[in-house]
Each structure stands twice: as structure tokens, then as C-alpha cells.
Design a protein around this nucleic acid. Structure first.
Lengths: 196, 196
DNA sequence: TCTATTCTGAACTGATTGGTCCAGAACTAT
DNA sequence: ATAGTTCTGGACCAATCAGTTCAGAATAGA
């Protein structure tokens, strides 16, 4: 999965995959069918590992440490935690891979529309969760923005996709943090940021 | 260029390129060196065709027709015109290709860092122009946003990149228009939108 | 220890990759 | 018309691609 994440689908040759997985060619075909099916399983695994930190943020105790009680709304904390957890609190090497689902949507769009649609569908689940978070926040009057929850969710996903491109561009941690901070602010999520 | 734009670098095989360009194999190598150099020329061409409508928007007369005099600031009009011209007023088939530079950054990041950096550098010129527009607008008090011009420009580029991903995802014209409208509104650019 | 099942390494396939080469066609200038 | 330059089609190359096959190693159960 990490190799696909780093290089993309087409650029991963069978020998590279076999060496990384440390199994033999025949084992791969026996276990996964072929390269494409292995890739689909990787997309699924990636989605699970990306989605989990979004819909199950850390415990309230940990939140109060992390965010210093600045944002008491649970739904908005989910979103902020998602970005902090997957964008900032991540080793540089992995951050610079961007998002496997975004990468796949772009790479396979004209090549294998089924794979591209598969990845896009996973992303839509994330967007749907964004929307639910904003809807919840709006019902609690915890957000300062008059756009609808759908619009905020779409915008949040657009910013997320743009940030993943920025990651793969090799932008510095500081730049990403600045962009993220301004993004969340414009969405109406007042984020904490340590001042230097 | 269009073929690279649609399929990406790696997925364009020589025979496909030759058939599309309607030249022979030897002519391609005589004229462009090799596939990679041809691609670099395409990136450059794409940048020029993308950047021109940004820094040379239509004449004031045309603007007044197009935007109904809603936004009298020239710099902000440049940005709005850029998005309208490259995102909305474009045939579906081409819109769904996204942005060749963004696509290239993602595809080549771990594969050919030189190509990826080349595309990223082109994108940074666009971002720089965004920043200049926002700086101009701020100096004329034409923008309702207390973030700095640099921050606004970075955010604008992040939204742009996110929108290009959304294009390649196959989002509908209506969705894109909605996202763009909200994006510009949050950046402080009050865009006109025909109400249905 | 013996048998039965599973797994694996390496050789092999046919197709495709980017790139080279050159004889001859097409064109230009005199 | 002729000589000189440019262009082109197609054959060719070695390398690599994803995928198949199978004898033999490794493992398991009894």
C-alpha cells in the first residue's frame, strides 16, 4: 500500500511490489488475483485508516490537552483533529505522498475509470462525514458561517484535496500549517495555533 | 499536449502520441529529442495558455457585460475571470481533464522529481500572480478579508488545486459552480451568480 | 515417519515499452 | 532537370511489462 501511495499504480512494477512485500510472484497471484485487485484492497485499507481518525477522534481528555479547550464543539473538533492528525502530525516522508485516493482519482481518471470512480466514491464518504459534522455544528450554533452544511462540506473537501496536492508538491510543514489554519478559519472553525 | 493532459505522462505510449500528432516516429525524435522533452514543451505550452487568461482578462467593456458591474476591482476580476474562463466556460470533455500541471505534480512526484518540480514551479507563478492581485485589491480596500495577500494567494491556489481534482473526479458543472461561488465568497471576492 | 496440502522460486510467455537506424520519398533551390 | 537537403515509414533493438506454469521445498496432520 505504501509503495502504491508513493509511486502510483502504473509506476509500481511487479518486481518492486514483490520485493517490498517480500513474497514470491506466484504467492501474490494466488493471494490477490492480480495487480489490480491488490491495488483495490490497498485503496480500501487506505480509506479505513484515513476515515477512522476522522469519525473516532481522541477522547475528550486528550482533546482538552491538544486543543486547550479552544473549541468545545465535538463535530468541529473531529474535522480539526482529522487535518492535524493526517496532515501535520505525520512524518515528512509520508506526508509528501499526499493522499492515495486523490492520487488515484487523478492518475486513473482516463485510464481505468472504474478504479478512479472507486477512489472517488471513498472520498465522497469522507465528504459526507464532513457535511454531517457541519450540520451537527450548525444545529448547536457552534459555527460562524451562513453557508449550508452541504456547501461547507464540499468546500472542506475541496480544501482537503488542494492540501493533498500541496503535500505532494513538497510544501514545508510551516506552509501547510499556515494554509490549514487559514482554511479552517474561513470555514468558521477557529483553530488553535501556537505562536512562535 | 491534450493527450498528456487526458491520460498523464506514463500512460501515453509512443504509438498513441504519433497517431494523435500524425507524424512519424523518427520525426518526433528529430523534432523533440525524446518523449520526456516533448512533455516538457507541453507543460510549458499549457502554462502559457493557462496563465494568459489570468494576467490578461477581457477588456473593461466585456467585463461590464460579463459581471454586470458587480465587482469593479480589476485585480479581483482577474481572479474571478480566470476561474470562470478555465473552469466553467470550457467544454465538459476538457474540464474533466483537470489541470495538466496539477496532474503532473501528483503523477511524477516520486517518479521523476525534476518533472514534478518543473510543474510545481509553473504553478507557483500562478500563485504569485494571485498574491499580487490580492495585494493590489487590499491596497484599494476592495477586499473584505483581514488575512494577508500571501495567505489569500496560498488559499486561492489550494482551492484551485482542490477544484482541479474535483474536475477530474467528474463533478457536475453545477457542483463546480457552487463550490467556486462559495470559494470566492470566502476569499472575499463577491461573485455574481445567476439565480435559477 | 509418511502422506497430503500449501507455498515458493525460477523459468517462460507474448505483448509492449522507449528509442535507433536507414533507405528512399518529398521537397527546395539553382 | 538536377543536386542537395529534409523528412518519413517501417524494420529493428534490448528491456521491461503483467501474468502463467510447474517441479520441488516447506509445512501440516496423524
Amino acid at each position: 500500500m505504501i509503495l502504491f501511495w508513493q509511486r502510483g499504480y502504473q509506476a509500481c512494477a511487479l518486481p518492486d511490489l514483490l520485493a517490498t512485500m517480500n513474497i514470491s510472484r506466484s504467492s501474490l497471484y494466488a493471494s490477490f488475483g492480480d495487480k489490480r485487485q491488490l491495488f483495490i484492497e490497498c485503496l480500501d485499507l487506505f480509506f479505513q485508516r484515513t476515515f477512522n481518525p476522522l469519525c473516532t477522534p481522541p477522547s475528550p481528555a486528550k482533546i482538552s490537552e491538544e486543543f486547550a479547550g479552544n473549541n468545545i464543539n465535538h463535530s468541529l473538533n473531529s474535522i480539526e483533529h482529522f487535518f492535524r492528525y493526517t496532515l501535520l502530525q505525520v512524518p515528512k516522508q509520508r506526508r509528501e505522498c499526499g493522499c492515495l485516493l486523490v492520487n488515484t482519482v487523478l492518475e486513473m481518471a482516463d485510464q481505468d475509470s472504474e478504479l478512479s470512480a472507486f477512489a472517488a466514491e471513498k472520498l465522497s464518504h469522507v465528504e459526507q462525514y464532513f457535511i454531517e459534522c457541519f450540520a451537527q455544528a450548525k444545529s448547536e450554533n457552534a459555527i460562524n458561517n451562513d453557508a449550508s452544511a452541504e456547501e461547507l462540506g464540499q468546500l472542506c473537501m475541496t480544501l482537503n484535496q488542494g492540501l493533498r496536492v500541496a503535500c505532494r508538491q513538497g510544501r514545508s510543514q510551516e506552509e501547510l500549517e499556515s494554509i490549514l489554519h487559514n482554511s479552517l478559519r474561513m470555514l468558521g472553525i477557529q483553530s488553535t495555533r501556537e505562536q512562535p
